[in-house]
């Protein structure tokens, strides 16, 4: 098996005449944190949406863990081991912390009608197991938050919501975690805290690979092992943060300097 966990081969996605992704080649190694950066509209989120099966690609292939996952449904991609967070938090705000995390644990839950309505004893054991797991994940971020598992998520501040969103993605034990702009809408201090959290998660789960989309260059510098820079749906540069930061093409894409 190659050391690449995720591979894009000439990945393309067009919306009408707009090529959001234009023949993108990219590889994510096992256990690395890859930073995906680029100006607005360069195709970062689109690539997440294509991988996770929200969009099907117009051309090219996606390989994950030795398996071709091109065009699989969102459900199949999740079952293959890819979980994500969203740029604009997509938690279920009226539901409790516990409920939200259990949505991420869906693959392990029995959804049969008979099981849920009649076999209440067995359901209870699953609920208790799920609770222990969810609580442990949340406690890894914040002990205080772990004591509030049955409060609605809508009452929590942004940073706690992001943490819950990451827990929801992690609870299924994915091999690859996609983080779409985790710092969006947070203050400088909160962003710093969340970075610590993400690094701590990586330490706890050492074979987890992460792709992170970010505009905050401080976050990219601190977290990532490797970066890929997109512009107009193409890869214009890759390498360590220091390398891409020094690349004149990257500078001109961001600043519009010739």
């Amino acid at each position: 098996m190659s050391d690449a966990l995720l591979e894009f081969e000439g990945l393309g996605k067009s919306f009408g005449g707009v090529r959001a992704l234009d023949g993108l080649d990219m590889r994510v190694k096992r256990g690395e944190i890859l930073g995906l950066i680029g100006p607005n509209g360069s195709g970062k989120t689109t690539s997440f949406n294509v991988v996770t099966g929200i969009y099907s690609p117009s051309q090219g292939r996606v390989r994950f863990d030795g398996q071709d996952i091109t065009g699989l449904s969102a459900r199949k991609v999740y079952e293959a081991g890819i979980a994500r967070t969203f740029q604009r938090s997509r938690l279920c705000l009226p539901l409790s912390i516990f409920d939200n995390i259990m949505i991420g644990n869906h693959a392990r839950l029995d959804n049969g009608l008979w099981f849920n309505l009649i076999r209440r004893g067995a359901l209870r054991r699953q609920v208790e197991e799920g609770y222990d797991k969810a609580r442990e994940l949340v406690a890894g971020f914040s002990r205080e938050l772990a004591g509030r598992m049955f409060e609605p998520v809508g009452a929590l501040p942004m940073i706690e919501r992001r943490r819950i969103e990451i827990c929801r993605a992690l609870v299924s034990g994915p091999k690859l975690l996609l983080l779409d702009e985790p710092s969006a809408g947070m203050t400088h201090d909160e962003t710093a805290q969340l970075m610590d959290d993400i690094l701590a998660v990586r330490d706890r789960m050492d074979d987890l690979s992460i792709i992170i989309i970010e505009h905050e260059m401080g976050v990219i510098e601190r977290l990532t092992d490797h970066c890929v820079v997109l512009s107009y749906g193409r890869k214009i540069s890759e390498g360590s943060y220091a390398q891409i930061a020094a690349d004149p093409e990257v500078q001109s894409a961001y600043l519009g300097v010739d």
């Binding site: 099966g53 969102a74 999740y78 994500r84 279920c92 259990m102 949505i103 991420g104 959804n111 929801r168």
Partner: peptide
């Protein structure tokens, strides 16, 4: 829980295999 999740966000639900 599944029904609530479908009501609140179909796309996110599908992303978690619902």
């Amino acid at each position: 829980l599944t029904l609530d999740s479908v009501r609140l966000d179909e796309t996110a639900s599908a992303c978690f295999g619902l």
